[in-house]
Design a protein around this nucleic acid. Sequence first.
DNA 1: TTTCTTCTCCACGAAAAAGGGGATTTTTAA
DNA 2: TTAAAAATCCCCTTTTTCGTGGAGAAGAAA
Lengths: 209, 209
Amino acid sequence: METQIKTFIIDDHPMVIEGIRMMLQHAALVEISGFANDGYAALEALKNTPADVALVDINLPDLDGIELCKKLKERFPKIKILGLSTFKERSYITRMIDAGASGYLLKNANGEELEEAIVAAYKGRMYMSMEAAQTIAKPVGQQPDIPLLTSREKEVLALIADGLTNNEIAQKLYISPLTVDSHRKNLLAKFGVKNTAAMIKYALEANLL
Amino acid sequence: METQIKTFIIDDHPMVIEGIRMMLQHAALVEISGFANDGYAALEALKNTPADVALVDINLPDLDGIELCKKLKERFPKIKILGLSTFKERSYITRMIDAGASGYLLKNANGEELEEAIVAAYKGRMYMSMEAAQTIAKPVGQQPDIPLLTSREKEVLALIADGLTNNEIAQKLYISPLTVDSHRKNLLAKFGVKNTAAMIKYALEANLL
DNA sequence: TTTCTTCTCCACGAAAAAGGGGATTTTTAA
DNA sequence: TTAAAAATCCCCTTTTTCGTGGAGAAGAAA
């Protein structure tokens, strides 16, 4: 019997872990080498039990998938990473890929798809679940892309979302209200919306807050 | 061998379904009678394969958990319902209970908890996962309660979130801008915030949009 | 060194929202 | 039928945001 692909699962829901375990039970090429319920536990566990592929849930209690992805790649450069999420978190896909992931799976994947993805990642290929691929493939404009915000802009955005006015934000950040106003205007322009309400909705849906 | 509790699973993620199946494999008192990936499929399937308890995911592609809960209770009054969700959707708990659910489980529950919950629900008792219970038990004020909005207010709120001004909303709804302004003020008051930005954030986090 | 980005600040004017009232009709529920 | 609740409309004032435009300083990258 040839060596199986060692796969490590990182998800905070035991149900999902058990589900994956079950689905891969009869997969000839894959074996589960271990699992963890959060990011730091995973980093710790992988020191002792190396893996070929890691399945990383996007929503973890401590680190988010993107951060964990970076850390994993940093400490275990050879590991291949597959992002795992529900259909709601599409905006993460590109960022996950940027962070070094080898692909992306939705949680409504079935066993075959799962195995296929793991094998593809292991062989150095990129795997995208159909839905994820479709989302990415959408021409820009249909799929609103997440604006790249500067750190100052993110800071201002968060305070706006908390209900502070320009004046209050200015006080908090020790800058002029006029500067805050500039940031606000730049934010509106970057988001391509015409008022704060739409911007906050957009930002929350894109997980920027 | 005595009769087992027939349990039906409704979740759009095969991984979760498999996980639950796996966890309950060795449960003496529970058997899985079937499953469905969305609300309407569940309503259809339950006609032929009656169940004692239904595990209902909050986020389904077609109906939300609350709606489905109501419909299930309407058509199959004897069925007991357990809500199922991630820690992010706390705001649903009370509404789910209002809709007739016998309890609430988080997806990070383990096998024993799962079985315990199903048995409790079957026996007509209420089961709350620890975290859910804690959330509910929090004194009002710490746990911000979701304001009860009228249907018109919800309508206006959604349009505000889409970035429309009072005038534009007025045109769309064929009412006076002054009326829209009134609704807006009432909304701000109900949410207990002082501007639109904070309101939209609040509304999105409470799943009201 | 030069260019680009980011952060900072400003002016002017128009539009919109917020704060604080009040009032009438229509629906809904008791 | 009668009292609430919801939806509608109105006034006035102040505050805040939005639109359009410009400009200087610091730092990074080319």
